[in-house]
């Protein structure tokens, strides 16, 4: 009775009972089915404990990073962080305004062309007008001379300096980096750049800065060649958005996020397709596999000793 009850409880509700011979046979195919319940519980506990300890060590490692004397930027809740969230294109448009009127005095966008802005921040006509505001060197013409002409959609966005040496000479020896990939080129890039732009403060006691250097706790060693450039009302937005310092910093970071990741919105769009494909096809394939294997899994093997066969 007890044995029957045990068998019903253990197997009856889960799978058909084909008798002890078959169960033994099935168990021989697998390495884990033979484990006792106690062993499974023990191993599960061990696994959970090991996983928990690993997670704790990882969390501790992440929380106390004090290798270098630099402030780690906090993680802000960017609206593009969601799995299906795109970049805010109004913000991108304002971000371009910030770059053009503030950042472009020192920083280049070497890997962006005017045509990249079409359909992202501006319409084609607007970008053509923006490009035409720049003077671009072209040539040689029929006489072999280089000449200046208004920019076109196909032109790369001109930088403020002809080369690195000129940039260094104009900035006390410091080189204002290209901004195209500035977000991807830094750990936690969007938060780092935002914090850097809004994080200027007076140097703490004991830190002396050379002339032309400014203190920023988020920059390595704290001494930065770039002065605080973003203040409230530093520019006037065309769409009337109040240009607070944090709004300006947010907009330019969002624009630079797009400059680093021009494929950002495409990736989010494709995520939907991939998940839709997976949700439909994976269960189908799993069902197909179980359907095909059902005969093999239910095969009954019988061993007949030789003396019984005769």
């Amino acid at each position: 009775m007890a044995a029957s009850l045990g068998r019903v409880c253990k197997f009856g509700l889960l799978k058909s009972n084909y008798g002890t011979l078959f169960n033994q046979q099935v168990h021989n195919f697998s390495t884990t089915n033979q484990w006792s319940k106690g062993r499974k519980v023990l191993l599960a506990c061990l696994g959970v404990t090991a996983g928990g300890i690993s997670a704790l060590i990882y969390a501790l490692d992440q929380s106390v990073k004090a290798f270098d004397q630099v402030a780690h930027p906090p993680n802000y809740k960017w609206d593009f962080y969601g799995m299906f969230s795109s970049l805010d294109h109004r913000s991108l448009r304002r971000g371009w305004e910030v770059y053009k009127n503030v950042c472009s005095a020192c920083h280049s966008l070497d890997f962006l062309a005017f045509r990249h802005l079409v359909g992202v921040t501006h319409t084609e006509e607007e970008v053509k007008a923006i490009a035409a505001e720049y003077q671009v060197q072209d040539g040689p013409d029929d006489t072999g001379a280089y000449y200046m002409r208004p920019g076109k959609l196909s032109d790369p966005i001109p930088g403020p300096y002809p080369n690195e040496e000129a940039a260094r000479a104009a900035n006390n020896g410091a080189y204002p980096p290209d901004l195209t990939y500035i977000i991807n080129a830094n750990h936690n890039g969007e938060n780092y750049v935002f914090s850097l732009l809004t994080g200027y403060c007076d140097p703490p006691a004991g830190i002396t800065l050379r002339e032309g250097q400014y203190f920023n706790p988020y920059f390595v060693n704290g001494a930065l060649g770039m002065p605080q450039i973003i203040y409230n009302e530093v520019i006037e937005y065309a769409d009337g958005t109040p240009a607070t310092a944090s709004q300006v910093a947010k907009d330019v970071v969002e624009f630079l996020m797009w400059a680093s990741n021009a494929d950002f919105d495409d990736r989010k769009r494709m995520t939907i397709k991939v998940i839709a494909f997976g949700v439909i096809s994976l269960p189908l394939v799993i069902y197909w596999k179980r359907l095909k294997w059902t005969t093999v899994k239910n095969t009954k093997l019988l061993f007949t000793p030789r003396y019984k066969r005769q």
Binding site: L282, V285, W288, K289, K292, W293
Partner: peptide, 8 residues
């Protein structure tokens, strides 16, 4: 088919 599951 079994491989297909893990591949997917």
């Amino acid at each position: 088919i079994k491989d297909l599951i893990t591949i997917m």
